[in-house]
Nucleic acid binder design. Structure first.
Lengths: 359, 359
DNA sequence: ACTGAAATTTGAATCGATCCAACAAAAATG
DNA sequence: CATTTTTGTTGGATCGATTCAAATTTCAGT
């Protein structure tokens, strides 16, 4: 039986129930949070009064202040919220985070703002026990903002070095070497690199100066890995074009145009993300080039889409789900220490790579 | 300059700052929430003290209690949390919700529990201003639980009738008729229906009794739509096999086996979800049947995957994103009224349907 | 110096619960 | 029947902020 005054101005508080039932607020509270210690008769009376008055149950807002624990972990990024549901990499990662949260019954609060001021506010006011940060771009600002909350947090895909911050990343150098070796062993000698950003807001061919001054060490490490390995095969890496993109459609296509406009077009492309690799496959097919007949391509990340496209993408797979799981667990059982983990990667050979054309 | 005691037992409160800076709590509070009304000199002094003591800024937990507004909307389901990132329909819907939330700066809190007791607790303790409910299954329990919170909520995909609950749905009858007409006009006369559940925990051929006793009106309406339209073409709908699945791989495949084991296998399949339709395409192809040569198939929902598979799926598209947007807006600018909206649907003809084989 | 208006600051009240030491009542023990 | 133990109940303190009416200070104008 609901209250007759559904639209009452002030919602009913626990204290109202206590008064109406003629018990102290302490007892009323116990009826809901530790019913077993209240005498059955009293318990039923209070419950009946609550029911009759249309009490919504203890308000979590009140409980929260006392308890301190929100029982939810925040996942933040500088992208719009839809990023979490659109981006294949993010989705797999969220799958891992979800798993860990489901296991402990924790919730997930999605926090975002493309908008700078709102980002600050959203991070400052998010009701969470800790943060997982997707540091796609503008990562350092996100980290700084989060640090101020003095809550536990882990940075994912942190593109830069900062030993004071907990982070989970992958072995970029090793992954890049795996990719490069695979192509070199297939006989390829003319390469091009589709690179992630070395610093914010730049696209175009990267000069050695730019690479040396890299803000993002992840990008730098992948390039270093490619070059180290190719050099072992006697390839002159100074001649390899490295095109910096924003990891999206437009700049990646521009990069491909620029790369294939050169005199000696590559027979193999090293892409620093599956996203770029998939765009490249699309672009190459549209241009009538055969993959891997004319051009081989290796991605980086290991998103599920790579397995489904035609031809299926050879790539360096990160243990994305596992990274998500660990990140969530780091927050959930936070012990105050800074942890930095580096995960291994794996070469997955599929149909987008093949032997270099002889002659 | 951070505090020397990073690991201090008790975090610093606004009151500590106030005392240290020699101002009242009121003023200290204003320094952070309405800095413009405090004298510059005082403001700087308080800020300096805060900085020096390593104050993390006003704790949202405290603010919340006073302010009342969480500025986040909860999205709940009985599926595990990963559902939001895996399921194509959910993802598109979340895209719409994200858009609306981004526009107003609200956050999204994901709430779930496959587990029954946890579901209750999670719904009861979620810090949100309102809920959007994904009523896939066990929807009525979810609605009951949420109603107790006395917060605004909207039910999506609500499979059953309950006029006291705000809900957004689609015109199931109209959509189903569109699908049926399309196939009938292509000359098909032998049909089978891959149906969603009429009640919980049932699979197998549905008898008229089961249909009549349907708990889920959405399923019932779609079937009614199919049958009404087919009847207009003079088709005996009592002969059409209707197989109830759980909208997943196993039961759908079982349904297809059962349907194609019959004497006169259908030339057209009406699937009540794209999920089932896509599974059917896979199954039919594996069996060596040509689509749409041997069998035509129409889905329902309009998820993006339908456009990408081979052959691309003809389907009844719901305005999924728009539903998500509206649901979010209903919560965000809730005015205390119960709203029920029915959205239109659209037939999207792609490659999975073609003329019935003559003779 | 005096006055009234405007700008700041204060401190008590409030938000809605939980916790816990102290107390009371009932039950068990000697 | 007195004493201890067990079980239940009470009400004040607390969680960490915001709000607002009232008090105080500042300042322009005379």
């Amino acid at each position: 039986m609901a209250s007759l005054l559904e639209g009452q101005a002030r919602p009913i508080r626990l204290a109202d129930i206590a008064k109406a039932a003629g018990v102290s607020h302490g007892t009323a509270s116990n009826v809901f949070s530790r019913p077993e210690i209240v005498r059955a008769e009293v318990r039923e009376r209070v419950k009946a009064v609550a029911e009759q008055m249309g009490y919504a149950g203890p308000d979590p807002k009140g409980r929260l202040l006392r308890a301190g624990k929100v029982n939810a972990i925040g996942v933040a990024t500088t992208e719009p919220l839809s990023y979490f549901f659109d981006d294949p990499f993010a989705r797999v990662m969220m799958g891992g985070i979800s798993e860990a949260c489901d296991a402990t019954g924790a919730g997930i609060a999605l926090v975002s703002a493309a908008n700078q001021e709102k980002l600050a506010w959203n991070i400052q006011s998010a009701l969470v026990d800790g943060f997982i940060l997707f540091c796609i771009e503008g990562g350092s600002r996100l980290v700084d903002l989060t640090r101020e909350r003095r809550l536990p947090f882990v940075a994912l895909e942190l593109g830069f070095q900062d030993e004071t911050v907990s982070a989970i990343g992958v072995d970029n150098v090793a992954g890049a070497r795996l990719a490069a070796r695979h192509l070199a062993e297939l006989g390829h000698r003319r390469f091009a690199v589709l690179s992630l950003a070395f610093a914010d807001n730049r696209t175009g061919f990267a000069t050695p100066d730019i690479v040396r001054g890299a803000l993002y060490t992840g990008t730098r490490d992948r390039l270093a890995g490619y070059f180290e390995e190719l050099a072992r095969f006697g390839i002159d890496t100074t001649k390899i074009p490295v095109y910096e993109t924003e990891n999206e459609e437009k700049s990646t296509r521009a990069g491909l145009e620029a790369i294939f406009a050169k005199d000696e077009p590559p027979t193999a492309i090293l892409a620093m993300s599956d996203r770029m690799a998939l765009i490249a496959i699309d672009w190459l097919k549209a241009r009538g080039l055969d993959i891997p007949g004319d051009v081989s391509i290796v991605g980086f990340d290991g998103v599920p889409d790579g397995a489904l496209c035609t031809p299926a993408l050879t790539t360096i797979a990160q243990p994305i789900t596992e990274i998500g799981r660990r990140a969530a667990r780091m927050i959930l059982d936070h012990d105050g220490t800074v942890r930095r983990e580096t995960m291994g990667v794996e070469l997955i050979v599929r149909a987008s790579t093949g032997p270099a054309r002889t002659g």
